[in-house]
């Protein structure tokens, strides 16, 4: 298992309230599993104070823009190594 840093951006960050964290993961799919579990736990905690909170959707690889160490990641099976930094972002636009 590699020790990696995960950073969430865009609506994934606003919805899960997770900005950055260190986790252990072998490959990209593991990252999604861990992040979704963390998000679920965080939601369960916050729901105690605010029952009206909406549960964030699960983040899936096909829905996200993923970068590893600044390079675009196209395969969910890509292996991870110690000290890798993974960015998970949502598509964006503006002006």
């Amino acid at each position: 298992m590699a020790d990696v840093t995960i950073k969430l951006f865009g609506v994934y960050r606003t919805d899960t309230q997770i900005s950055a964290t260190k986790i252990e993961a072998d490959k990209i799919t593991d990252v999604f599993a861990v992040v979704n579990k963390m998000a679920e736990e965080k939601f369960a905690e916050k729901q105690k104070e605010n029952p009206d909170l909406v549960k964030p959707d699960e983040i899936k690889f096909k829905d996200a823009v993923v970068y590893v160490n600044g390079e675009k990641c196209k395969r969910k099976g890509r292996a991870l190594h110690n000290d890798d930094e993974v960015w998970i972002m949502s598509p964006a636009s503006g002006g």
Partner: peptide, 13 residues
Amino acid sequence: QLPKLGTAGLIAP
């Protein structure tokens, strides 16, 4: 994206 982060949400992408 636009309501939650505004156009500012573009910095990270």
